[in-house]
């Protein structure tokens, strides 16, 4: 069973490595969006510090959204998804492996780049650490929820826009508590409750997300 998980994970990472452009696009999009805002708003340090976490989290959610339509589309088009459904391995495991690969190629690079963005907003060192921590816990949730959305909109014309309408509202709690952790750290409040809630979301979504995605994939291929 673990073999199928590793096989899918390895294959998806291999494909991502051979299509570096798509991975880089997402990262560059994230950096550009997060860097544009201070230019538009002006160089008032207190204002920038206050909005830094929110901006970074919104940029991360949009960047995740940008990469999600491709999650199942290629496998759907070339018949691999069909093979995943008829395989004896549990489909949820295959979906979980695809989500893990998606996170490693989008969420993780975003989280690692975020402290650099934070410097532009004049965030202090401990807030940069909090930003990194909140993204490391929160971006897997975006991938998990996004997978369910991507599966639901598979094969639908104009699915990209629909996917946005579907998953962005679901991203709200992650956004609120992710940005909240950094902001509370800045104002001297203990941020651990925010991070714990993010962790709870991650636990719930890693159970519910693949299950919902599996059900949607079975319907899409019926």
């Amino acid at each position: 069973m673990a073999d199928a998980f590793l096989a899918v994970l390895r294959r998806d990472l291999q494909i991502a490595l051979r299509r570096k452009g798509e991975v880089l696009n997402v990262l560059v999009f994230f950096i550009v969006v997060a860097s544009l805002l201070p230019l538009g708003i002006g160089p008032e340090p207190n204002q920038l510090r206050a909005m830094a976490a929110g901006v970074v989290w919104i940029a991360a959610a949009l960047a995740a959204l940008l990469s999600l339509p491709r999650l199942f589309a290629a496998d759907y088009a070339d018949g691999t998804l069909e093979q995943m459904l008829v395989a004896p391995q549990p489909l949820a495991l295959v979906v979980l492996a695809k989500v893990a690969a998606h996170w490693l190629t989008t969420g993780l690079p975003l989280a690692v780049a975020a402290p650099l963005i934070g410097l532009q907003y004049d965030l202090p060192a401990d807030a940069l650490g909090l930003l990194l921590a909140s993204l490391l816990i929160g971006t897997p949730v975006l991938s998990l929820l996004g997978a369910a959305g991507a599966a639901l909109t598979l094969g639908v014309r104009g699915g990209g826009a629909l996917l946005g309408l579907l998953v962005l509202p679901l991203f709200v709690p992650v956004l609120v508590f992710g940005a909240g952790a950094v902001t509370s750290g800045l104002t001297g409040i203990n941020p651990s409750s925010h991070l714990s809630l993010l962790g709870a979301f991650l636990a719930v979504c890693s159970l519910v997300g693949p299950w919902a995605a599996c059900a949607a994939l079975r319907v899409a291929l019926d």
């Binding site: 051979r18 070339d78 395989a87």
Partner: peptide, 29 residues
């Protein structure tokens, strides 16, 4: 106990022929 090969070959452009076959076999456990 069943092998299904549909219309679409399920072959990935980015992978080599051997990698494609290896993945398909590992997926079927």
């Amino acid at each position: 106990e069943m092998l299904f090969l549909g219309h679409a070959p399920g072959v990935k452009d980015e992978l080599t022929v051997l990698e494609n076959l290896g993945f398909a076999v590992r997926l079927s456990g």
